[in-house]
Design a protein around this nucleic acid. Structure first.
Lengths: 333, 333
DNA sequence: TCAATTAGGGAAAACGATTGCCCTATGTGA
DNA sequence: TCACATAGGGCAATCGTTTTCCCTAATTGA
């Protein structure tokens, strides 16, 4: 049977008040009492009941992490690092899939609030703007992860998607590519990456051709059919930028189905640098984000809000880096 | 501000007892009172505070899912389906990585118990036998997922690994392969799969050659070096069975590095049927498990134990199925 | 008509911790 | 020696539910 604060108090011959004070380092307790109590706590391996203390308004040491879909391994990677940092700081992470469904988002958030989670980390593709606004207004600890909402005053931790898109396009341009297709999806990150891509092109004096940009679903198959459109055109692009690895791999499949050699006839580059990059062949060039650091930051920020009520908002944007592998090469005449 | 049971009681002109009875369908309440209370509950969108009711011994509607390492996408897949079923039944899933570290396992379990999670789902590769025994002895709801412990009287839900290994080897044998290498890892599932493989061989009258079986780490690189050992031998195997997809893909890489054509010169088959199979090329043959059903079962069992105290132990083993793709073919003379 | 049921509902004690306030020694300075 | 400060610690209320009794009025049966 789990022991309670009463057991400790009884054994130490003090009141529960005293035990509580020892545990929380509050009030005035003599050294000898403190040591005696601590000794007993240790002997009995006592830990305060989190439910009870959460009820008294203390934190529940639980943070919810909302993700749209764990099928994309980048979310598993996020989860891994966020959970890791949580563990270090004594917090548990409750993962919830929202399936890109704004009704589910609402249901989850309501349930989780009722469960007194201390805060929310919301990953990209969150749909329910209204809900987000509510959370922010009632000053509930929320941090966006891997996306930003410029219209809201809310903390966020992301890789610089715009910069990533810019770097990617610039890199492909430096290899001589002039017609660069894009496979995107419907998300803020995707849009940012594409915006960066456009800027790089116009900076290089290349007019942006919207017909080269295909925005569709998030599945590999969507990308495959999207890329097919691009590749079947007479003036097909010499390179394709997938706004994430899965989409890029979809494009690779479309290319392979057409017997196009990668990278000789078509360069392909992804984004996120998931383990998938090393698994496809040729290995996929991509853009890597410092996921571990991002995870650490987001946890530190949200815990700062929870424990110290820090209210200064911040947007952390870490720079991504290009990882050149085998799918990208100079354009062939 | 969240409303409490007192608010409801006040507004309905009844006591909190009555409200509680309405909510939990207990005691005798007149129809009119019941309806009035329910109406107010609905109007205020009231939900009982889970912490408070969990403190009174009711369930916390939280189940912990312990996994060794989310880097293998099969765990993400498990998580996805378990969480999905949990959602349907009103339970949240707390995911915890144990990193294959038995100290972490112990720390997590202690923390989670203190948090009053209702039960544990423990995924394969759990190390701390002692801890497991304790949990079982104190009758804490535990179900093993994707592995069994024959020595303990504990529920489990798994795919039939033995059968999977058997089917795999038999299939390769039917393609004419006689020297079939294995890349395994240190886990119960792996051992079972290998046992099935051995049985298939001996059934076919082929002596088991232990030098063909390499057991190493769980990373792709481990498999790559393991496979290298097999492939650099004069009498190299004509097929390699990776006990999971990652290991199989490691073997593919080793083969590619040696310019061996797959499947002409070497057949490769994996296990788990993760999305990786479709991403490598040639696409990887594998063994698929009904993950969705497994996830549903494990949740239903553990919730049955939690809510109804069901104590009959069961071991559910669902049959896996072969998925033939491009990496396996008849042996070439 | 009267005792025994029953229907409907309430009071109050938990669950395990936290905390504002209070109390009693002892120490301190003048 | 006396008034007062301080150190050390306890009482009891509280968080939001659940649950065990208990009570009252109405109904029932004979």
């Amino acid at each position: 049977m789990k022991s309670t604060i009463h057991d400790i108090a009884r054994m130490a011959g003090v009141s529960t008040t005293t035990v509580s004070k020892v545990i929380n380092n509050k009030g005035r307790i003599s050294k000898s009492t403190r040591e005696r109590v601590n000794q007993i706590i240790e002997d009995l391996n006592y830990r305060p009941n989190v439910l009870a203390s959460a009820m008294k308004g203390k934190s529940s040491y639980q943070i919810a992490f909302l993700i749209p879909d764990i099928d994309n391994p980048i979310y598993a990677k996020y989860l891994k690092h966020i959970e890791e940092r949580g563990q270090e700081l004594g917090y548990n992470v409750v993962m919830c899939s929202t399936d890109n469904d704004s009704v589910k988002e609402a249901r989850h958030i309501s349930l989780l609030k009722q469960r007194r989670v201390d805060g929310f980390i919301i990953a990209s593709k969150f749909k329910n703007e209204e809900l987000l606004k509510e959370l922010i207004e009632e000053d509930f600890p929320v941090v966006l992860f891997a996306h930003e909402r410029l219209a809201h005053s809310v903390d966020s931790v992301t890789a610089d998607d715009y910069m990533g898109g810019y770097m990617t396009a610039k890199y492909l341009h430096s290899l001589g590519h002039r017609k660069i297709g894009v496979i995107g999806e419907d998300s803020v990150s995707s849009n940012e990456r594409i915006r960066g891509y456009k800027f790089a092109l116009s900076e290089a004096g290349i007019p942006v051709d919207d017909r080269l940009i295909v925005v569709g679903g998030a599945a590999m198959e969507d990308a495959e059919s999207g890329a097919a459109l691009l590749l079947d055109r007479k003036d097909r692009p010499s390179a394709i930028f997938g706004v994430n690895d899965i989409l890029a791999i979809g494009a690779m499949r479309a290319a392979k189905a057409r017997k196009l050699r990668i990278p000789e006839q078509l360069s392909v580059i992804g984004f996120d640098d998931t383990q998938l990059c090393l698994i496809v062949s040729p290995t996929l060039s991509s853009v890597t984000m410092p996921v571990r650091e991002l995870g650490k930051h987001v946890m530190d920020i949200i815990i700062g809000k929870i424990e110290n009520g820090e209210s200064v908002k911040q947007r952390i944007r870490m720079l991504p880096e290009l990882v050149v592998r085998e799918t990208t090469g100079p354009v062939q005449p």
